[in-house]
């Protein structure tokens, strides 16, 4: 009977499942955060206004081409293949045996970065032109404008897309089993390999994936709502007004 097997598998292997789930969350989280940082940097660079001539223009052009190739390439190839190429490629190219966990984090980060770069650029472009102009008009350069005015608004706008990317990464890290990272899918495979109960073992894994994505989705929704901020402001009374501004 399946149900009995499921109970038995859980009771015998729960540390293994938990370890796998933990590893999956860990890779997905680090990968998403680093990917978002890569995406933000790529987005900022790709929106620098093109200088009219000179060395700066040449450098910016070359950088933009490299970024475009990176984005197209990693969006246009499967992560499972990227994992193999990066893991075995680094061994071949630099003669190093890369730590599989490091390889996994790198693959997920640069893969996520490629998607986030486009999301961030869309976010920057959608900010009202007046915000850029007002920042420039008080003397901010491109970088100051981005950090102090544009990116805080972009980050708020792309938070749902970033959360979505995190959820996708929780699921897609399962392909990393091809480089033997001990994430949930990989460990489930070894559990099933021992008891030959493939359906029951993977059913447990399936539930764990769902619980993780479900909880993460709820948490993200909660933060999105909180970021909206309060609808009201407190008006300073005439008494307080003389003091140093309250925060």
């Amino acid at each position: 009977m399946s149900l009995e097997w499921i109970v038995k598998i859980i009771s015998e292997n729960w540390p293994m499942f938990l370890r796998g789930a933990g590893m999956t969350l860990y890779i997905a989280l680090i990968g998403t955060v680093l990917g978002a940082v890569i995406g933000l940097m790529a987005g900022v660079i790709r929106t620098i206004p093109m200088p009219e001539r000179g060395l700066k223009k040449a450098i910016l052009k070359v950088t933009n081409v490299i970024l475009s190739i990176y984005i197209e390439f990693f969006r246009g190839t499967p992560m499972i293949v990227q994992a193999m190429v990066i893991y075995y490629g680094s061994a071949l190219a630099f003669n190093i045996d890369m730590n599989v966990l490091l390889a996994a984090v790198i693959v997920v980060s640069i893969n996520t970065g490629a998607y986030m770069a486009e999301i961030v650029r869309g976010g920057i472009v959608s900010i009202d032109k007046g915000q850029f102009e007002a920042a420039q008009a008080i003397g901010m350069n491109h970088f100051q404008t981005m950090v102090n005015v544009v990116l805080p608004q972009v980050i708020r706008n792309i938070l749902p897309a970033t959360g979505n990317q995190f959820v996708i990464n929780i699921k897609d890290t399962s392909v990393l089993n091809v480089i033997s990272v001990s994430e949930l899918y990989f460990l489930t495979k070894s559990v099933a390999g021992n008891n030959f109960r493939y359906f029951e073992s993977f059913f447990v894994a399936c539930m764990l994936y769902f619980v993780m994505t479900f909880i993460v989705t709820r948490i993200l929704l909660y933060f999105e709502r909180r970021l909206e901020g309060p609808d009201n402001y407190t008006m300073l009374s005439d008494v307080k007004q003389a003091d140093v501004p309250a925060k």
């Binding site: 009202d128 007046g130 915000q131 102009e133 007002a134 920042a135 608004q153």
Partner: peptide, 9 residues
């Protein structure tokens, strides 16, 4: 500016 352009954030 005509459209104020206060920093929304």
């Amino acid at each position: 500016f005509q459209q104020f352009n206060l920093f929304n954030n």
